[in-house]
Simulated assay, not measured.
Amino acid sequence: MKFTVAALRFAFSALMLAAVTRSFVYDATHGGDVWPWDWFGYFTNQNNLAAGFVLSLAGILLLTGRRLRWLEYARGAVTVYIFIVGTVYWTLLAASMPPEIPWTNNVVHGVIPAYCLLDWLLIGDRAPLRFWKLWVIFPYAVVWLGVTLTRGATDHWVPYPFMDPATGYGSVSLYCGAIVVIAVVVALVFWAASRFRGILLRDSADHVEAEPAREHRRDDGLAA
């Protein structure tokens, strides 16, 4: 079963990379903005690439029988981010930002978020996440939000219409605040779900839970 799970992780990571690459090539050949500071500034692009990285690394570790505790927290955080990517797109942006390449749009806003969610909920090769470490979802999100709002106020580039200062900072604050609240609620649910042993690779939970002593000796800042 571990070979099947690893293969799925590699396959969806490859699908994501194909979709992101196709989108970049399309923009580059059709007069789109492919300046890296702009193109890779999109939360969607960043977090699809992050999802591909953590899924691929999780697949490799699964095959080699190794475990990195920090990766479990990274997977939890990225699962929150990519869930937000899908939720925000389909609720706020889909109607106002019709896709130029529908299949790439469906992959990065639908298929990858859905797979990451199922991978987290159903596959048991992760230990329960500590609730007091919920803070790990914030550093990246705060930096991204700070940089994006600063750019909106200075060079007037924003990745999404609801973040445009021209709509008023009250509106921007309302949307961003709502997304932060949703992210915290989603993170709490995903952290709680990590206590479920999953349907696939359930035996991995026994292996994970048998290692607390070794983890406490490891000064990695994210020991369980």
Rank of each mutant, 00 (worst) to 15 (best):
K2G: 12
V5H: 10
A6G: 11
L8P: 08
F10G: 03
A11W: 13
F12L: 10
L15V: 08
L17Q: 03
V20F: 01
V20A: 00
T21R: 02
R22H: 08
V25R: 09
D27A: 11
A28S: 15
H30K: 13
H30T: 09
G31A: 15
G31W: 11
F40P: 02
G41H: 04
Y42V: 03
F43S: 07
F43Q: 11
T44G: 01
T44V: 09
N45F: 03
N45C: 02
Q46I: 09
N47K: 15
N47E: 05
L49G: 00
G52I: 06
G52C: 06
L55V: 14
I60G: 01
L62E: 09
L63Q: 07
L63V: 14
L63I: 15
T64S: 15
R66N: 14
R67I: 00
R69H: 00
L71S: 01
A77D: 05
V78F: 10
T79H: 15
T79E: 00
V80N: 06
V85D: 03
W90S: 05
T91G: 00
A94L: 06
S96F: 12
M97D: 13
P99M: 03
P99Q: 09
P99H: 06
E100K: 12
E100Y: 10
E100V: 11
P102S: 05
T104A: 04
V108D: 00
V111C: 00
I112T: 15
A114N: 04
C116F: 14
C116E: 11
D119V: 07
L121S: 04
L121H: 10
L122K: 14
L122V: 12
L122M: 12
G124R: 15
F131H: 06
F131A: 08
W135V: 14
P139A: 01
Y140H: 14
V142L: 12
V143A: 13
V143K: 14
V147C: 03
T150D: 14
A153T: 10
A153M: 08
H156G: 00
P159N: 04
P161H: 09
P161A: 03
M163E: 04
D164S: 01
A166V: 12
V172T: 13
S173I: 10
Y175C: 01
A178T: 08
V180N: 12
V184D: 07
W191T: 11
W191K: 06
A192C: 03
A193Y: 02
A193T: 11
A193E: 02
S194E: 00
S194D: 00
F196D: 01
I199D: 11
I199N: 10
S204W: 09
S204K: 15
E209F: 01
A210H: 11
E211T: 15
R217I: 01
D219S: 07
D220M: 01
D220V: 03
A224M: 08
